Amino acid sequence: MVAKIAFAVLALAAAVCAEPGAPLVVAPAYVKAVDYHARPHYSFNYGVNDPHTGDHKSQSETRDGDYVKGQYSLLEADGTTRTVDYTADPINGFNAHVTRSGHAVHAAPVKAYAYAAPAVVKTIAPIVHATPAVHAVPIAYKTASLAYAAPLAYRAPLAHHY
């Protein structure tokens, strides 16, 4: 794509700079040839060891053609390290061998306590009808040491008897 753009810019620049009646000459653009059928080959590895967050992991992988071989490991929440060795090829498919190392450490159980909700006392203020509009009437809720009011919205009655 870049080669096509460069070619178009060069052609435009040559056309602008050329004298009227002079032949148009453009230098050939460089085009990189890519072989899409080449045998794939790569190798990589990385690792993280962060004592602040407790993130410990690593991975490495190698590929040669259709054969892939790799390993990754990570620190589990229980303190063990899980290591996975894997291979993949067109004949055998994906195969993984998982191992764990280290001793699992579990947190001590938390003692459960019975919890009783505080008693709620409701006091309703008298409702005064005025006009058929929406009014706010406070309702007070009292708990052990807290008292707060919540508004109550209502409409006037639908029918009036005159």
Rank of each mutant, 00 (worst) to 15 (best):
M1Q: 14
A6M: 08
A6F: 08
F7D: 03
F7C: 09
A8Y: 08
A8M: 12
A8L: 15
V9C: 14
L10G: 01
L10Y: 01
A11I: 00
A11G: 07
L12V: 13
A14C: 15
A14R: 07
C17G: 08
C17L: 15
A18R: 04
P20K: 09
P20L: 05
P20T: 06
P23F: 03
V25D: 08
A27T: 02
Y30D: 04
V34L: 06
D35F: 11
H37K: 08
A38D: 10
P40A: 07
H41M: 11
F44G: 05
F44L: 05
V48T: 12
V48S: 07
N49W: 06
P51S: 05
P51I: 12
T53A: 09
T53F: 04
G54R: 13
H56M: 13
H56N: 12
S58A: 15
Q59V: 08
T62K: 08
R63C: 11
R63T: 06
D64M: 06
D64Y: 00
D64R: 03
G65H: 07
Y67G: 01
G70E: 03
Q71P: 00
S73Q: 15
E76V: 00
D78F: 05
T80I: 03
T80W: 03
T83I: 15
V84D: 10
D85S: 14
D85K: 12
D85G: 01
Y86V: 03
Y86S: 12
A88L: 01
A88T: 06
I91D: 09
F94S: 03
A96W: 01
H97F: 04
T99R: 09
T99K: 10
H106S: 02
H106A: 02
A108Q: 13
A108Y: 03
A108P: 03
P109S: 10
P109V: 11
K111I: 11
A112F: 00
A112L: 14
A117N: 05
P118E: 07
V121Y: 04
T123N: 14
V128P: 00
H129P: 06
P132K: 06
V134G: 00
A136R: 15
P138E: 03
Y141D: 00
A144N: 10
L146E: 11
A147H: 13
A147Y: 02
P151D: 13
L152K: 06
R155K: 13
P157D: 09
P157F: 02
L158K: 07
A159P: 01
H160I: 12
H161M: 09
